[in-house]
Design a protein around this nucleic acid. Structure first.
Length: 461
RNA sequence: GUCCCGUUCGUCUAGAGGCCUAGGACGCCAGCCUUUCACGUUGGUAACACGGGUUCGAAUCCCGUACGGGACGCCA
């Protein structure tokens, strides 16, 4: 059997970190087993679904490198099929028409709660003569669910979970307007798509019992289920739209690399010995459901940031140069591009995010006179300016290679009875306008002789 | 309220009855490295929710309690 998984978001909000992780786990599981990863957009709630939200999901998945193996299926295109299955169930006597109005149901629920009973539908149309049907009321179709026994879910993460059928009621599968409810549409679509493993958030676990009843009524093979625990915000509460559920695209804005976010998400709720950092290939090789924990986990930005630093340092210099130019609003052929590229090994060592990286590279694109940070300005004392003027003469005559510059600076410092830092820091200030930068020799090389000396002279004037 | 699930350092986790004096990672603290800042590196801080069992032996198995989460819609 070929494994087929799917990610099935509803385009009513945004692709947040929890959804992204669900998608990642589905993707990794499918890849690990040589199967296919599919995408289904659950847009049956036309009132709340938006095209913009669908685009955000697609874009977020693409950015994370979680492209589905087949074109996405839009659930709204399948209503005829959903209705057909509903009719089949009706014909087979496994479903029935219920003529309760939403208002009546609401009232029944409220009464049940008030009387301390669980708010379940009593099934008053279950065995009633259709001739009793009140005129003018379009019926909803309800599943005639078993009332005895229990329904069991063998969950790959949660283990065997069982519930007495008496706890469940006759769910609506087709609304009075003929459209399918979520529970019904999911089952029909998963079946038709040949989904073998349903990997989704923990919040669907109790829904699964009802879905299983539909599979059983249709005599369909039940897929394997894996309910992964939810991700909570830093305070332990469920992620929601108004509670820290930021779109993955915002992480992109904040300068995170997709590989870092995936790495972080992988480790959130999944473990494999002491493995912490791994690329996509490693993740595919190691990932399986038995490594998924059962307790919800919290989002930890500090660790994400650390991981991003790790991946930044591993990232290709040319790619990072493009990212930095884009963030600085500069064209790729900007004169500073070469300098940024040249200094990238030193720059990326010091950055945690692309935002930091762009900030630290910005000085390379400026031209003198520079803006000096207060600490940098403080280093440009009259004495240091005199020293820099003298130093610029030395640099005029030095090979612009890191080893030669390093040697020249050491010689210069020694000749003046100064420690290297006493020379390097004022020099750094004059070149960058800051007290922080990659190694001074590498910085000089990246700027090139003419630019470096122009900056020193401008700062020392 | 009813049902379902969970609980190891602050956080993410390792742990499948003796290998646990409970390991790793992030964070935090201190040292080293050093031209700044980082990186790197060395060390430190810090946890089996609680109570009962079972067993020669329990973080691991069972029961209960507490706490947390989820689900109970003609939403998805």
């Amino acid at each position: 059997m070929t494994v087929r998984t799917r990610f099935a978001p509803s385009p009513t909000g945004l692709l947040h970190i929890g959804g992204a992780r669900t998608a990642l786990f589905n993707y990794l599981f499918a890849r690990h087993h040589g199967g296919a990863f599919l995408l289904r957009i659950e847009d049956t709630d036309r009132a709340r679904s938006t095209e913009a939200a669908t685009r955000v999901i697609l874009e977020g998945l693409a950015w994370l490198g979680l492209d589905p193996d087949e074109p996405p299926l839009f659930q709204s295109t399948r209503s005829a099929r959903h209705a057909e299955i509903g009719e089949t169930l009706l014909r087979r006597g496994l479903a029935y028409r219920a003529y309760d109005t939403p208002e009546e149901l609401q009232a029944m629920r409220e009464r049940a709660i008030a009387e301390g009973r669980p708010p379940r539908y009593g099934g008053r149309w279950r065995d009633r003569d259709p001739a009793d049907a009140p005129p003018g009321i379009a019926p909803a179709i309800r599943l005639k669910a078993p009332r005895e026994g229990e329904t069991v879910v063998n969950d790959l993460v949660q283990g065997t979970v069982r519930v007495a059928n008496a706890e469940l009621d006759d769910m609506i599968i087709l609304r009075s307007d003929g459209t399918p409810t979520y529970l019904h549409a999911v089952v029909v679509d998963d079946h038709d798509m040949g989904i073998t493993h349903v990997i989704r958030g923990d919040d669907h676990l109790t829904n699964t019992f009802r879905q299983v009843q539909i599979y059983q009524a249709m005599g369909w093979e039940i897929p394997a289920f894996a309910h992964i625990p939810l991700i909570h915000g830093a305070d332990g509460a469920k992620l929601s739209k108004r509670h820290g559920a930021v779109s993955v695209l915002e992480f992109r804005e904040q300068g995170f690399l997709p590989e870092a976010l995936c790495n972080y998400l992988l480790r959130l709720g999944w473990g494999h010995g002491d493995v912490e950092v791994g690329d996509r290939e490693t993740a595919i090789r190691l990932f399986d459901l038995d490594g998924v924990g059962r307790a919800p986990s919290r989002m930890d930005y500090a660790k994400l940031i650390h991981l991003n630093g790790v991946w930044l340092r591993r990232a290709d210099d040319a790619r990072l140069t493009r990212e930095v130019l884009a963030r600085l609003g500069l064209p790729e052929d900007h004169p500073a591009a070469g300098r940024i590229r040249a200094l990238m090994p030193g720059l990326k060592e010091r950055a945690k995010t692309l935002v930091d990286l762009a900030l630290s590279a910005a000085f390379l694109a400026h031209s003198p006179p520079l803006q000096f940070e207060p600490k940098a300005a403080a280093l440009l004392t009259p004495e240091n300016k005199a020293m820099l003027r003298e130093l610029s003469g030395v640099l005029e005559a030095t090979d612009f290679t890191a080893p030669a510059l390093d040697a020249a600076l050491r010689r210069f410092a020694e000749g003046h009875g100064k420690k290297l830092g006493q020379v390097a820091q004022p020099l750094r200030a004059s070149l960058t306008g800051s007290t922080v930068s990659p190694g001074i020799d590498a910085t000089l090389v990246a700027l090139g002789r003419a630019e470096a000396i122009a900056r020193i002279k401008a700062a020392a004037a």
